[in-house]
Each structure stands twice: as structure tokens, then as C-alpha cells.
Design a binder for these strands. Structure first.
Lengths: 225, 225
DNA sequence: CACACTTTGTGCGTCGGTTCACAAAGGGAT
DNA sequence: ATCCCTTTGTGAACCGACGCACAAAGTGTG
């Protein structure tokens, strides 16, 4: 099932996919500074990873490097972009225009990577109709219509926890298969749908765990049973 | 994100630590609904994981279940909270009060888990002095003083990318060893410092990759899961 | 051309994490 | 007390990811 001669093997490991955006960011910075070629070592340092890992990651896309020289920055940017699907334009809808939704709508990092916020949707009549980041906030009743009319393929959920599953069900029903979930709930979706979750409070809790370890040290080990 | 094994981890795997907050959230929901005991199967479903994994995770904390019965919800909440260090109060400083920083300051999920936003800090004179979420925004010049005065042990970086490393160096210099970074840069810190990063644009890029693969056709559907 | 030097691409040992499957342990009924 | 039923806790196989270390492949120089 995995042929070594196949130049663009689609069996790219998930761990690799998660790092490609990192490499892309580093490469963009280098391109801006006029760097034409880069070695795996330098790129690895810029991306904060091991150089062997970086080379193995890139080898999954094909043999785009030159031994003795390194990688052509422009070319690599193009190859990674294409692999990630960033050469096309992705229409994103943000559902839930609270503090977080607003921040996301204004976040520059999206547009600069081929993502276009195509719709803002909320249930609160107080917010509906407002202009945020140059977009008109639409009512949740229009959810399905807006998604289909604007060709939205990725939905960002920034609703309260209680509303998330219901909205999720509706967007899945109209064919959306990629969801970025900021609501602190476990969404239940069909296997065919990709959900990535970002939970700010969970990240802090993980930090707290390690911080406690550092601060408490051996003292805690005694207290535990 | 780096996750070096800490010397005093009492042997709890990093992957387990990352899931404990998930279990905790599910358990809180159950406690609210008056559920006294729960089986690993039910809790696993609520947290969206495999039940064997859940049992193994919990077994790292100790033997807190009763065979034939399940786990006592209240007791488990307490044990996990203690393990994560949530029984104490953590003072958090948010540096960078743009759209994202503002959203974080108002985010309810923090306070409800033992985290207290103790300071908001920004460089923009336009913002300094404003009241946000009941807090006065302070100037970046006061960074070190504020951190020490308020006993801040976790810093959230929500600054522009260009400023992040400099702020990071300063907070590390005053002894902060836990950082949650929202800026799209790879922070360079001593090994003793924990950095967790959240990059919204990277999450979208990963979704785009899978979305593209789904749209690609039946050839890829074979290898997709 | 031959040789020295650089850097990629990868085989392979290792390790952490996931999952299965089951023995051990507890509760309840008779 | 004994038997049956439920559910935990874990041994062990499996799987993917990581990183070392090196052969292969390219550049440059004399």
C-alpha cells in the first residue's frame, strides 16, 4: 500500500502534518529576509525541532532537497503550501461572536495563510447586524443558508459550551467536515468529520501540573498516597 | 511545544496529564447532575476516550476505583484536582491586551478552575490604564514589578510575534517558569521553563490538509481513516 | 579526474503510548 | 457462605514516532 517509488505518498504521518505549518512559518520568515537556500539544520533550529526529524518529515513530501546544498526556500514553501492545501482559498465561518469569536475574526494570522473569514454567525439579537472586521454578523437561523451560499468548508465554533453540540450537528448536516472547536465540550460527530479542539483552560491546567511539580518537588511526593 | 520528562513526575506520562483536565470536566458535569459513582466506560464516553486508556490513566494516580462499582465522582474530582495542582490558586498575568488578550481576560473558563487573572500588561499607551474585566491594564515597563508583587507564576503571551521573545526573556529572568504562548513564534527558553503554545492558524492548516484529502477523491479515501 | 567536504535521505534500535483481554476484586442475591 | 455478575487494574502485544548514525549524492577545488 505504500510504494517507495511514489513521489507524493499521501500516507503522511499525522505528527508530520502537525509540524508542516511550523516549517512553513520559518520558511516564510527566511524568504522575507532574502535567504535562497537553507540546510535542514538551520531550518530545524528556526522551527525548534530536531534536524533528523525535519528531514524525515520533508522526505514524506518527496525529495526536494539537494545533497551538499540544502533546500530551496521558495520551492519548499510552495511544496508545503500545496501539500497542506493552502494554495486554494478556504472559506471559514465563525459561529459565536463573543469575546473569542471577535478576536478570531480580527486575527490576522488567518488571512495570511489562505483562510478567509466568510461569515460571522451568532444567536444574540444584540450582536446580529453588527459589523465586525468588515463583516456583517448574521443570525443563527441563517446558518445553513450562509454556509452553502458562501461555500464555507471549515467552521470555527466559538459558542458557549451549551450551544456547541447543537450547532455542530447542524453544520455537519449541511456537509461541513472540518471543525475547529473552542467550546469546552467533547463534540460527537461521524467518523468522516474532523474536529480539532483548542481548550485554553486545559493548557493552563497542564502548565499548573508541571509548575506544581517544580515548586513542590519532593515535598509533594510524601503527601501523596 | 516541548515536553521533556520532568525528574519529579512521579511517573505520570505526559499524555495522561494532558487528558486529566478532560476527565475533570466530565466529572464536574456529572457531579452537577447528582451522579455519585461512574464506571470507567461511562466516564470514557463522556470524555471521548477509550475506557482502557482511562483506567490506565487513573491508575497512575492510585487505586481510586472500586471493582464491580466504579469511581466515586466527588472523590475522583478531588484526586485529579490535587494532582493537577488546582487545589491552589494560580495567579496568571496576560501580556498583550489586543483582541486575543481581551478575550482571554474575559474568558470564564480560567477562574472556574483555580486560575486568577492577576494582571494585564501592554505596551500601547492607548490601552494602558483601561479597565478590562475589572482589571487595570498596566504598562510593560512595570512587567517585572507586577509579576513579583502579585505572585504571578504563569504568564500568558498574547503579544504580536515580534515582541514575544523579548517579553519572554524578561519574564523568565524574574523567575517565571510556565508560559502559555499565543504568539506565532518559536520561543527559546532554558530547559527548566515550560512553554505550551497555541497557534490558531496552525490548527486551521491541519484541518485544511485533511479537508483537501477528503475532497481529493476515492484514491485517497482508501488510506484515510 | 580525483579528492575533500557538505548535506540529504533513511535503516534501525528504542521508547512512549494505545489497545486488547483477562485475572483479581468487590457487591448482591439466595 | 457460596455463587454470579460487574468492573477495575494491568500484563503484554502492537503501533507510531523519535533520533542516531551513516551511506548516498551532490558541490567545489586543484
Amino acid at each position: 500500500m505504500k510504494s517507495p517509488s511514489h513521489p507524493r505518498d499521501r500516507g503522511i504521518p499525522e505528527a508530520t502534518v502537525a509540524r508542516l505549518p511550523l516549517y512553513l512559518r520559518a520558511l516564510h520568515g527566511m524568504a522575507e529576509r532574502g535567504i535562497a537556500t537553507v540546510s535542514s539544520e538551520d531550518l530545524a533550529v528556526a522551527a525548534g525541532v530536531n534536524s533528523a526529524k525535519l528531514r524525515k518529515d520533508l522526505s514524506h513530501l518527496g525529495s526536494y532537497g539537494t545533497r551538499g546544498v540544502g533546500y530551496d526556500v521558495e520551492y519548499l514553501v510552495y511544496q508545503i503550501s500545496r501539500e497542506l492545501g493552502l494554495t486554494q482559498d478556504w472559506a471559514v465561518a465563525i459561529v459565536g461572536v463573543g469575546n473569542l469569536g471577535r478576536a478570531l475574526a480580527n486575527y490576522g494570522g488567518f488571512v495570511s495563510r489562505g483562510f478567509r473569514v466568510a461569515a460571522l454567525i451568532d444567536a444574540d439579537p444584540e450582536v446580529v447586524g453588527d459589523d465586525i472586521a468588515g463583516l456583517n454578523v448574521e443570525h443563527i437561523d441563517e446558518l445553513e443558508a450562509v454556509i452553502q451560499r458562501r461555500g464555507v468548508s471549515i467552521v470555527v465554533l466559538a459558542t458557549p459550551a451549551a450551544a456547541a453540540q447543537k450547532v455542530c450537528d447542524r453544520v455537519v448536516a449541511v456537509g461541513v467536515t472540518s471543525i475547529l472547536n473552542f467550546a469546552p465540550v467533547v463534540l460527537s460527530v461521524p467518523d468522516s468529520v474532523d474536529v480539532r479542539k483548542v481548550d485554553l483552560s486545559i493548557e493552563l491546567q497542564i502548565l499548573a501540573f508541571h509548575e506544581q511539580r517544580k515548586a513542590g518537588g519532593p515535598l509533594m511526593a510524601v503527601e501523596s498516597q
